[in-house]
Every structure is written in structure tokens, then in C-alpha cells.
């Protein structure tokens, strides 16, 4: 909420500058013009926002499930962890600009390449957060459970998993800020519809106002998802309120 006055000030300054400097709106549109044009194009914008939301959510869900399953596997099989983690680090060094067109080339213009690209970008922070979270478990709590005769699986379920929750949600929040951008980029590299395609078309038609309208929607989506993770965290971790 404290960011609100700053945002308002930036938008106002931008509006004034765009109006008074004489720069044509084809180069620098004023925020008011962006809003009006976005409203006029609202149907097209909405039609292109939906596929992006779908790609983001499916890709992110896929990524979360995958990160969780792998984190469990790597927690139980330590040698595997040392073997696989470097591979995942390498996956984070791939430049999206180069990979996105290739993934589209391999998997077509449908949903699959978008899901894969969103997962590629968001998977690693969550995996790492989970693994570090498991290892943050208090040794005393583990010793206690072992003294009670708890199996390794029970120690995981009763202690390691809940200990990892705060770490997991941190990873989730970092990941989710990349998710929408990754989906848009995947569309940009090749799609039939979506915000990425909308941006591409607007740019080719010399409409920076519409490009920026799509950018605004993308930011709003990310902020919404970010707020959602907070809400979910409050429900899942009632003791941390």
C-alpha cells in the first residue's frame, strides 16, 4: 500500500512529460492514452489474456508438482542429489531467447511449449527452496522423532516437510514473478494467441500504447498471483500469522 503514492507520482510525471514535451504518441504515449486505447481494445485484449493466464497457471502447476516430487526423491536419495543438482543449475543458464524458439520448433504452437518454458524458468527456485527447507529441520526435533521410533518416511512427513514450508513459499513467490513473463515470452516466440502475440502485433503496427497496455495487464497478473501465494500461505501455515 505504501507503494501507491510512488506509483501515482510516476504515472503523473509520465503523463505531464508526454503531454508537454511534444513527443508524438507513436513514440511515447501518455498513460491516459494507454488506458483509453486499452479500453477500446478490451475484447481483443481479454481474448489474448486468457491463453496467457492458462499457460501461466498450467505451467506453474506442472512446475510445482515436478519440483515437489523431485525434492522428495532427492531428499531420500542423497547421491542422486549430488548428481542431479548441477544439471538443474545448467538448466537455469540457458538463455530463454535461444531456447524459446527451439521449444516451439519441437513442440509446435500449442500449449505444450508454453507449459515447458514456464516450468523451465520457475522450477529451479522452488526445488532449491524445498531442499534447503528440508535441511533446515531442527536436529533436536529429528532426534526426538527417532527416539520415538519414527521411520525415515515419518520423520519426513512430520518434521522435514513442515519445516520446509516457509522456504517453499519464498521460492514460490520468487518463481511466480517469472511465470507470467515466461509465458508471454513463449507466446512471443510462436503462438496463435496470447499477450505475447498481442504485443508482437501491436509493435509491428507501431502501437506502443497497446504494447504498454499488455505490459500493464502482465504486471497486474503477476501481482495477483503474488498476492494469491500470500493468501495460500496464510491458510497452509496458520501458526505463522
Amino acid at each position: 500500500m505504501r507503494a501507491l503514492p510512488v506509483l501515482v507520482a510516476v504515472v503523473l510525471a509520465w503523463e505531464l512529460y508526454a503531454r508537454l514535451s511534444g513527443i508524438p504518441p507513436q513514440i511515447l504515449p501518455a498513460p491516459s492514452r494507454i488506458a483509453v486505447q486499452a479500453w477500446l481494445q478490451r475484447e481483443v485484449l481479454w481474448q489474448n489474456t486468457l491463453p496467457t493466464i492458462r499457460a501461466t497457471c498450467l505451467g506453474f502447476a506442472f512446475s510445482t508438482v515436478l519440483a515437489f516430487l523431485l525434492s522428495v526423491l532427492l531428499d531420500f536419495a542423497r547421491p542422486l542429489r549430488r548428481a542431479l543438482l548441477p544439471v538443474f543449475v545448467i538448466s537455469q543458464t540457458l538463455p530463454l531467447v535461444a531456447i524459446a524458439p527451439l521449444v516451439v520448433l519441437w513442440f509446435g504452437f500449442g500449449l505444450a511449449p508454453k507449459i515447458l518454458l514456464v516450468a523451465l524458468v520457475t522450477f529451479f527456485p522452488m526445488l532449491l527452496a524445498l531442499i534447503e527447507g528440508y535441511d533446515s529441520t531442527e536436529p533436536e526435533i529429528e532426534a526426538l522423532l527417532q527416539s520415538m521410533g519414527a521411520s525415515r518416511a515419518k520423520v519426513f512427513r512430520l518434521a522435514r516437510l513442515p519445516s520446509a514450508l516457509p522456504f517453499f513459499f519464498n521460492g514460490l513467490r520468487i518463481s511466480i514473478t517469472y511465470a507470467v513473463v515466461a509465458a508471454i515470452f513463449a507466446e512471443y516466440a510462436g503462438a496463435v494467441e496470447g499477450l505475447g502475440i498481442f504485443i508482437l502485433n501491436a509493435k509491428n503496427n507501431f502501437r506502443p500504447d497497446l504494447v504498454l497496455a499488455a505490459v500493464g495487464i502482465s504486471s497486474a497478473l503477476t501481482l495477483t498471483l503474488f498476492a494469491l501465494t500470500r493468501a495460500v500461505q496464510r491458510i497452509v501455515m496458520p501458526w505463522a500469522r
Partner: peptide, 19 residues
């Protein structure tokens, strides 16, 4: 045989996520 001991570790080792 079995576990004849009930162990109370250093500090309290209460789980913050359990009531």
C-alpha cells in the same frame, strides 16, 4: 527391546506448526 526410553531433547523441540 523396543524403545524403553522416552527422550526429552535439549531446548523443548516443540514443533512450531503443531498446536
Amino acid at each position: 527391546r523396543g524403545q524403553p526410553f522416552a527422550f526429552m531433547p535439549q531446548r523443548d523441540a516443540l514443533m512450531p506448526w503443531r498446536r
